Simulated assay, not measured.
Amino acid sequence: MEFSELIKARYSCKKYDGRPVEPAKLQQILAAGRLAPTAKNLQEQKIYVIEKPEDLAKVDQLTPCRYGAGTVLLVAYDQNNMYTYPGERYTSGIEDATIVATHLLLAAKDAGVDSCWLNRFDPDKAAEIFGLPANEKVVMLLDLGYPAEGAGPLERHTQRKDLSETVTYL
């Protein structure tokens, strides 16, 4: 699919049919995340694939927003392997994990898989429930799957502010 069409077609799916993503498609999606740029190419992202029923039930304990997805990716970053920017006020962990996650959700759409970025949960509780190492910080969960009957973009999906409202030339 042409990139401009892909970004127009991608939406946050809020109703899945429960099927997990096929292994070949999942590998394609994960490979796209691996190609995302990171500060100093540190690649501090950590992606956890959640598909077992008992692990999906843990996701359901964290958030009401799994929407029946059969595959969920937990995206985190390693605090021991991130770049600290000059001034030492910011590090690359959250931004790099976010860039990776964006690659994942766009690659999913390209593979014919819908997605929804989830951040309505306690990341510390997610790390605890899934037994992540203390140095890893959870950024988001990414639902992946196939839309259930009647699923589709929200009404406001195509409504966008004019560029003049969001862009200023300096």
Results as ranks from 00 to 15, higher is better:
Met1Phe: 05
Lys8Val: 05
Lys8Gly: 07
Tyr11Phe: 15
Ser12Leu: 06
Lys15Asp: 09
Lys15Leu: 13
Arg19Trp: 02
Val21Leu: 03
Glu22Tyr: 05
Ile29Phe: 04
Ile29Ala: 08
Ile29Gln: 02
Leu30Phe: 10
Ala32Arg: 10
Pro37Ile: 13
Pro37Ser: 09
Ala39Trp: 12
Asn41Pro: 04
Leu42Gly: 01
Gln43Cys: 06
Tyr48Gly: 02
Lys52Ala: 15
Pro53Leu: 08
Gln61Pro: 00
Gln61Tyr: 02
Pro64Gly: 13
Cys65Tyr: 13
Val72Trp: 02
Leu73Gly: 09
Ala76Ser: 15
Tyr77His: 12
Asp78Thr: 04
Asp78Met: 02
Gln79Leu: 06
Asn80Gln: 14
Asn80Lys: 12
Asn80Ser: 11
Met82Arg: 13
Pro86Ala: 12
Glu95Cys: 07
Glu95Leu: 08
Ile99Met: 14
Val100Met: 14
Val100Ile: 15
Ala101Val: 06
Thr102Phe: 08
His103Phe: 15
Asp110Met: 10
Gly112Val: 01
Val113Lys: 02
Phe121Tyr: 07
Asp122Gln: 03
Asp122Tyr: 04
Phe130Ile: 07
Phe130Arg: 04
Pro133Trp: 00
Ala134Thr: 09
Glu136Tyr: 10
Glu136Asn: 10
Val138Asp: 04
Val139Asn: 03
Met140Ser: 15
Leu141Asn: 03
Gly145Asn: 05
Ala148Thr: 03
Leu154Asp: 12
Lys161Gly: 01
Leu163Gly: 01
